[in-house]
Structures are given as C-alpha cells and as structure tokens.
C-alpha cells in the first residue's frame, strides 16, 4: 500500500496549552482512517496542521511526500479539506462557490465544468445549486463543503466531522459517499460518533488530551472491551441462582451479572477472563443441568466502552 499521509511527532502548543502532543501516524491509499477523540482532544488542531491552516510547533506532516511547511502549495494541491462546520461564503450560490474553489485550484474551462457537474452529482446538490448558501439547510451546506473538498479529485481527503448535525438519512448518504471514494484515496475522517467508525473506517486512531491512546482496527479495539466475548443469556427465573452458581464455577468466567428479570425469565451477562471464548462452555454446562436457554448471544464488545476507558480523564 502506498503511503499518502505521514505525521511525525506533530506537536502544537498554544501558550501553556499542549493542544497536540507528539502525534505520529500514517495513512495509505485506499485506507479510511477514523480520527476519534472527545471534544477538545486535538482532532481539529491536528487536521489544521496537516492541511496547512496552522503551523506545527514541532514535528512534520507530509502529504504524498511533500512537507506541509516546506512545500505548502504542493501539499495543499493534493488535499481536499472539509473544515469543521463546513464554512462557505454564504452570499454565493453553491455553483459560484464551487467555481471559485475550482479556479483557486487551477481548474478552468471544460475540465472545470465537468468536475463541477461531477461533484454536484456525487453530493446530490442539483436542486440547491442556484440558491444562496445562506438560505440552505444544514445538510445541504455540509454537502457543499464536501463537494468543494472532492472537486479536484484529490488523492488525500481530510474531513473534519463530516456528518455532524446531519439527520440519519443524510449521515447514511455521506458515509456511502466516503466508502465509494475510498478505493483510490487516503481518507481521514474525524468524528466523535462511534457508529461511524464501524460504518466507514478501516482503522481508528483515538486521541485524548493531545496524545494518541490507540491506533488499531475497529475489531481489535472492540477486543479490548471488558464485554468482548461476554455471553448474554436468558433463562427461567426460577433457576437463576442455580445457573449463576454453576457459571461462576467455570474457570474462565470472571463475573456473572444479572441484567434484568421480566415475566418469569432472567437475563444474565457472563463476563470472561481476558476475553476468553465462553460460548461453548456456557451452553454445554446449562444443557448438562437441563436449564432451558431462551436466548444466547456472544457480545462482540463495545467500542463506546473502549473509547470511554481510553479517553476518560484520569489524574496524571
């Protein structure tokens, strides 16, 4: 895989505040990287350094081999950037705005017109193309920002919270668009919505207080969840205590937690030690004792738990 973006020890200090602290990662062509973190963790600051809007205090960022500080023009040419909040000139129509961005990027004539048509079609902006951006809905404005970012078909896309404030249908559209474009590009998507990571990302980098706390595939992250491979089962209420005691006796079981009791049934969560595979052992044991199981599911683990564990502020 061809490496398109490389951040090396990127650091940004605003006065006494360490906004981004020693951040390094790289993104290859064809990869969608989810950049996660709580608000204020340094996501936008990192993206702003990568796109050349602010200068790093130390460290480097390269786009297709071009250093964003040494050769900003070459680097910027290869990036499509959707800044946070999708800013655009409100007095212009999307068409005029896209034409301006295209001209700034050196597109002209038939080539510009073709790319304008393409970008407008890909972001479904046709019906809004001739209305002032100020009068458009949030969803349309976000799409104008996306159209502007993909206009010149850049090898690197940097999208700062592309689905923030959109309704579920619009979110779905944007994610579909990102997925469609992912094959030929290196894409960085910042978000604090975890479902987005599952929906579009091949890899997730989690940042907290300016530092990277995880860089892994979503499945790997999920494996770190205490609930990974936990077994959730529903049984007869009358036999709950017996089952609980028996399950606790299994070596690989860390904890048996009652979740709910409804209509004479009880639901238990059986948590494994170190994510061990419990499914077969639990089912076998209950079968042996003749306890009828109504439901049994193995939990894949939850990203939000991992996210919270990694980013929750702890005393330093």
């Amino acid at each position: 895989m061809q490496e398109m973006v490389r951040l090396e020890r990127l650091t940004k200090r605003f006065g006494a505040v360490q906004a981004v602290d020693d951040v390094s990662f790289s993104v290859a062509r064809g990869e969608v990287l989810g950049f996660l973190g709580p608000n204020g963790a340094g996501k936008s600051t990192t993206m702003r350094m990568l796109t050349g809007y602010i200068l790093p205090t130390s460290g480097t960022a390269r786009v297709a081999g071009f250093d964003v500080v040494q050769s900003p023009r070459e680097a910027k040419r290869r990036i499509g950037y959707l800044p946070e909040g999708a800013p655009a000139y409100g007095d212009m129509t999307p068409l005029a705005f896209l034409r301006f961005v295209g001209a700034m990027r050196g597109l002209a004539g038939a080539d510009l017109e073709r790319r304008l048509r393409e970008a407008i079609a890909r972001t479904s902006l046709e019906e809004a193309a001739l209305r002032p951006i100020d009068t458009l809905s949030k969803g349309f404005r976000r799409r104008v920002g996306l159209a502007q970012a993909i206009l010149h078909d850049p090898p690197v896309l940097v999208l700062d919270e592309p689905t923030d404030g959109l309704d579920p249908n619009q979110k779905h559209e944007v994610r579909k668009l990102i997925k469609e474009m992912s094959s030929g590009k290196a894409i960085i998507v910042s978000t604090h919505i975890l479902e987005e990571v599952d929906a579009v990302c091949d890899r997730a980098v989690i940042i907290a207080r300016g530092r990277i706390v995880a860089d892994a595939r979503p499945e790997e992250l999920r494996r770190r969840s205490p609930a990974h491979n936990a077994v959730r089962l529903t049984i007869d209420r009358a036999r709950e205590e017996e089952a609980t005691a028996a399950l606790r006796a299994i070596n690989a079981v860390r904890e048996v937690r009652p979740l709910e009791r409804v209509n004479g049934t009880a639901t238990l969560l059986v948590l494994p030690v170190d994510g061990a595979d419990l499914g077969a052992a639990v089912a076998g044991l209950l079968h042996e004792r003749g306890i009828r199981v109504e439901h049994l599911t193995v939990e894949p683990g939850r990203l939000d738990e991992v996210f919270r564990a990694l980013t929750a502020s702890r005393p330093s």
Partner: peptide
C-alpha cells in the same frame, strides 16, 4: 467570523 478563512488559507495559494 464565518470560518471561511480556514478554507481560503488551505487552498493552494500564497
């Protein structure tokens, strides 16, 4: 005020 400066300064122009 509107944040468009971020867009403008990340376009390939000095």
């Amino acid at each position: 005020r509107t944040g468009t400066i971020e867009l403008l300064l990340t376009l390939p122009a000095s």
